[in-house]
Nucleic acid binder design. Structure first.
Lengths: 259, 259
DNA sequence: CCCGAGTGGT
DNA sequence: ACCACTCGGG
């Protein structure tokens, strides 16, 4: 039996909103340590890997491993039925047909319950190797989101060029080109505002803005995004959950014609 | 001759917006006491009853009873031509072909006038009996609206079950079910937030969510909705106008198959 | 009274 | 999935 209670419904709402535009159906794998999801988007280009750690719940109990095959669109509708600050509890039996979502107002004068029918979804559970990356960037997630949104107007690809002392995002399109250059710096007062670059080798990689546009839907999950890059290797875009866990997106770079 | 002046055009705008999705054409019956409207929606299931009391106007005069047959869609377009905080005056002759809508900026630097052609609309004026109801619920109108919006995602019907110490709203659909349970309580500081139940007999009634969806368009008119229920009797959903008057919707419950 | 967020419609 | 409108907050 699974019983997981969030102190704020908004956390689960943000998580689901962060992935539901990439992935329509996915399995929630519940274990004693928390809930994980792994899924690829419809075009099989973007890999989503979520861990909601046990510590992200105010109460959590999962005696035996349980898989919940969920239609994220329906689930998202249910989650919107709560208020952000409500308690949210997920309940499921050991071999469930349904998952129950319960909202409780903190004044306890209102309780709403929604039952969602589960689906059988087959998915290979992908083993993701810990890679060595040439470059790791930490930056404010909102700033990254704005760059992606802005440059999406110009073309379909975004190139990220990292050198020892700068990160450059550029996009070239029909009607013009655009670029944003960031210098690493540390804001002592607001560390979240810092831009940090750890680099063992310069990189120059190009990504599809369509997928980056999906990735930045997760901006609300964390003030900081970590981007790990290496030549000819899927890039890792990571949002850490304050409460414990992460949402990671793996996206292969576009290859140059002369490769 | 009718001359009715609203201190804020927004009041009339809210009123018209509250009913124009239920009713396309209706008679505005103007008497010395104010303006009333009674109409049924196209499917003749939902009855709308409006009273804009004389006190809701900053100036009001109506020597003889006048009937204004109005196309609400056109009227709504006219009303949107003013600013919310403008004065709005309705003018009509004793046997009018037109009604004039006049907006005045409060600084008196702008006056706009719109004339709307009237229509001949036949409508039985329905005598609505004062019913005895088994249950009266008072609750925040916004909360009722959210429940209707949320449960509308699940199915086409909403069941309201009232007992001595709870009000339960439930809906069952293909992909899942949902329910919201409210406990009556009184908020001393914000009485509008209270949920009150006066019950002489428990009720269990089912309504079409389509119509409830129309009813909650009136949410802006009042912070509180009063719902009066009795078995096999049209339910009354009432929004009181702060300035004097009310907007009431009468909706027959769906009947069980075994009735 | 303006702005941002949430919601409903195309 | 995107855009426009409406509503609530500053």
């Amino acid at each position: 039996m699974l019983e997981g209670k969030f102190d704020e419904a908004s956390l689960l709402k943000k998580i689901v909103d962060s992935i539901k535009d990439s992935v329509k159906l996915c399995n929630f794998n519940c274990t004693e340590h928390g809930i994980t999801v792994q899924a690829v988007d419809d075009s099989r280009v973007l890999l989503v890997s979520l861990l909601v750690g046990q510590s992200a719940f105010s109460e959590y109990r999962c005696d035996r491993d349980i898989t919940l095959g969920i239609d994220l669109e329906s689930f998202s509708k249910i989650i919107k039925c709560g208020n952000n600050e409500d308690y949210l509890t997920l309940l499921a039996e050991d071999s469930p047909d349904n998952v129950m979502t319960i909202f409780e107002d903190k004044k306890k004068e209102r309780v709403s319950e929604y039952s969602l029918k589960l689906m059988d979804i087959d998915s290979e559970f992908l083993k993701i190797d810990d890679m060595d990356y040439d470059t790791v960037i930490n930056m404010p997630s909102a700033e990254f989101a704005k760059i992606v949104r802005d440059l999406k107007n110009l073309s379909e690809s975004l190139t990220i060029i990292v050198t020892k002392d700068s990160v450059k995002f550029t996009s070239e399109g029909e009607s013009g080109t655009g670029s944003v250059v960031l210098k690493p710096f540390t804001d002592m007062d607001k560390p979240e505002e810092s831009v940090k670059v750890a680099l063992s080798m310069p990189v120059n990689l190009t990504f599809g803005l369509k997928y980056l546009g999906d990735i930045i839907k997760a901006t609300g999950l964390s003030g900081v995004i970590t981007i790990k890059l290496a030549d000819k290797t899927p890039a890792l875009f990571e949002y850490k959950l304050d409460a414990g866990g992460y949402l990671r997106f793996y996206l292969a770079p576009k290859f140059d014609e002369d490769d």
